[in-house]
Write a protein that binds this DNA or RNA. Structure first.
Lengths: 208, 208
DNA sequence: GCCTAGGCTGACCGATCGGTCAGCGCCTGG
DNA sequence: CCAGGCGCTGACCGATCGGTCAGCCTAGGC
């Protein structure tokens, strides 16, 4: 118990800012950015619209704040990719991390995937889409043919969309573990032959 | 042919209704339903907002009219599925038809896929989602395990999203043929083992 | 006990939303 | 030649949008 003496313990329900971020994230995912008004967010969170704009300079600022954690982790994920892709044994970790990243930030992923094109003028969306593109490129560099690229695209997009397609707040039971493992399986199967074909510069790789 | 003598031949550039449907479809796909105003559609089509509402009772009516052809074909596609799935030789046709359906109605597919959940209260969207669900179910009935279902989901969702993910109006060159063939390849590979395992009621099927 | 500062709010702003309506010009059939 | 309907439009409607602002209330330092 960290309560030494008289400290401001009131953080039980505190941090209206975080609460608003969470409510906004959910509503943006469910009804879209343009389809969600500040009034609706304020009502859902139990504040007034003015209060929302007190914590966040604008609707767009709230949107960015809500997506920021997910994008930050995506950025971090991208860094780990380079390392994982060069190691044969850790290549499977890529898929696991990818699926887990999607699972952890399902709402944010939902927004970026479904509304990414529509909202491409919002900086953090642009940033996220750039990161996703770089993830693709770090693979694509070794995949010259369209067929290979499509294969990778179907694997990543398919996995992402599966987790995003079902209505938000669904997929919360224990079957989430089952879905996770099934996804890891399928995606691994799809990208494994690609990993074998890329990096033609490594000498000891067997062609079969 | 009902054209007896002097017929109104002026259908060359005519039919403001069709023109509006097309413009609206594109803008709804690009900026979302809530993100597109009647004023924007009217401006893009070269009409006044009042004129748009003259041809279509409401914004929602215009939306439904724009999506109607695609949904109609989707409905038709669903009918052909039952037949194709019972025939081993025609099962591949399912994939080809599915990919071609997506390609032909890319904008509509974009809307239904990306905005389907958000707009689920609009009748035609509900209808389209119901049709998609039935397509899945006609497969799922023979797929008991989560892994198999996820496999199917990744195949269909992945293919759909690939064609939808890139910015609209892109993917128009000759490489569209290349993408089409690659997609058919990957999806076929993903669902073929499933088709072999389903229909346990057929007597001659080997369990292995 | 007062004073300040921060969380929060209602009133209000101009702009834009979807939608209505009266009326414009034009083309056409009688 | 004229009456009527059709395509189309601007003016206008109430509602709601994102955002501003002055001020209320309360907790905490002095």
């Amino acid at each position: 118990m960290p309560t030494s003496s008289a400290q401001p313990i009131q953080r039980v329900v505190n941090d209206a800012s975080a609460e608003l971020r969470q409510v906004a994230l959910q509503m943006f995912a469910e009804n879209g950015y343009t389809g969600t008004s500040l009034q609706q967010i304020a009502d859902a969170a139990g504040y007034s619209k003015s209060s929302v704009l007190y914590h966040f300079r604008s609707k767009e600022a709230l949107f960015e704040a809500a997506l920021a954690p997910a994008v930050a982790e995506l950025d971090q994920f991208l860094d780990s990719i380079v390392e994982k892709l060069t190691s044969d044994v850790r290549r499977d970790e890529f898929v696991v991390d990818f699926v887990d990243l999607l699972l952890e930030h399902r709402l944010a992923a939902h927004i970026i995937i479904n509304q990414g094109q529509t909202l491409s003028d919002i900086p953090i969306i642009d940033q996220a889409r750039g990161l996703i593109e770089r993830i693709g490129e770090s693979f694509m560099s070794g995949l010259p043919t369209t067929k290979q690229r499509i294969r990778l695209g179907v694997a990543l997009a398919g996995a992402a969309y599966i987790l995003v397609a079902s209505t938000p707040t669904l997929l919360e039971g224990e079957d989430i573990v089952e879905v996770r493992e099934a996804l890891i399986d399928v995606v691994t199967e799809l990208i494994t032959p690609l990993a074998a074909e890329r990096r033609p510069q490594t000498g000891a790789s067997s062609p079969s």
